[in-house]
Write a protein that binds this DNA or RNA. Structure first.
Lengths: 190, 190
DNA sequence: ACCTGAACACCGTTCAAGT
DNA sequence: ACCTGAACACCGTTCAAGT
């Protein structure tokens, strides 16, 4: 599907250098790392970067595609090990921790659940994450531990929101856990 | 407190022109509106903008200080009209709707609840909002409708997070209401 | 005391020329 | 088919000169 004809040898080499440079730059400077700097680090002209990755979004996605796919696998693992409600909670927790630790991934996940003017053109990353959360959510709803009136995408968005909140708090993993529990249990007394 | 000696006439005029231009630019282009453009709109040199507002944050805050203070007043109004739990919920709703509608205010509120390396130097805007939410939260906790293990700042952060989520959804006011209810009631079945 | 605007540094993006 | 890097446009920030 993403297959096209194979790249010329130099193109493929540049592609991989760019990915490596991008990962480093995003880790150091966050999602807004300079594209020019990334090209320089990779030792290629800036035009080459644009040829391979027409938008910052595309580069971000390519840089984290492995990690995102690991989350898809992890969802099925958890579904096999634990009761649905717990599996969902743990997966959301790991997703939140991941997007806090790996700078740039939060932005990627955010745009993966953004409504882009109606007909949501799901990104590759969006497809994987959305598929995973849908399986977990349906199971938890069937089990009766998750309310029936929420869509999988709502859960993803709210988790992203909670992660944002935790980041504002300069939070560690304990704080994320706390905020996520407030979401799943609610703020009401009880 | 913010009083200093009175500004020279031309300084005061420029200050106000800048505020007006900033409000317009933020409304049009969001929180990242070009500062240079704002100075041009106001008909002043860019240095003048920096003299009055050393950071973008400072300009954002000055542009919205009236609106923020209105939220402080509104909190007391609601506290006088409704039971504490309802007053808090309604206030958070209005805050969320406000930060979605007025571009730039969301960013301002976000940074108002951000932990800035330990000794949180609260902004003026942060002080107002934090004071208001504290009054509402304490009352709701005393009444027993809000769980006792959350701090006012947590409520503010989570509301900011929910607003973020709603924005991702390209949401209207109905969606915000729904997401806020999910926060206050929780995701668990029941 | 305050203002102006040129100057500098930096970044994203395009595209003509090269291999 | 792909790459390079100069060129352009734009922005934030500083500061010497001016009133």
């Amino acid at each position: 599907m993403t297959q096209g004809r194979p790249m010329r040898a130099d193109a493929r080499r540049n592609y991989e250098r760019l990915l490596k440079a991008a990962a480093g730059a995003f880790a150091e400077h966050g999602e807004n790392a300079s594209l020019d700097d990334i090209a320089k680090r990779a030792g290629v002209g800036s035009g080459t970067l644009y040829r391979h990755f027409p938008t910052r979004q595309a580069l971000l996605e390519a840089a984290y595609v492995d990690r995102i796919e690991a989350f898809g696998v992890r969802a099925d693992e958890l579904a096999g090990e634990r009761p649905p409600g717990e599996a969902l909670a743990e997966w959301l927790y790991e997703l939140a921790v991941g997007s806090l630790q790996v700078r740039g991934m939060r932005a990627l996940l955010g745009s993966a659940v953004t409504e882009h003017g109606g007909a949501a053109a799901l990104t590759a990353c969006g497809t994987v994450v959305h598929g995973a959360v849908t399986r977990l959510v349906k199971a938890a709803q069937a089990e009766g531990t998750l309310r029936g009136d929420v869509e999988p995408i709502d859960v993803l968005r709210l988790t992203h929101g909670v992660t944002t909140a935790a980041e504002l708090a300069g939070a560690g993993e304990r704080e994320i856990r706390r905020y996520l529990r407030l979401l799943t249990e609610g703020l009401r007394a009880g």
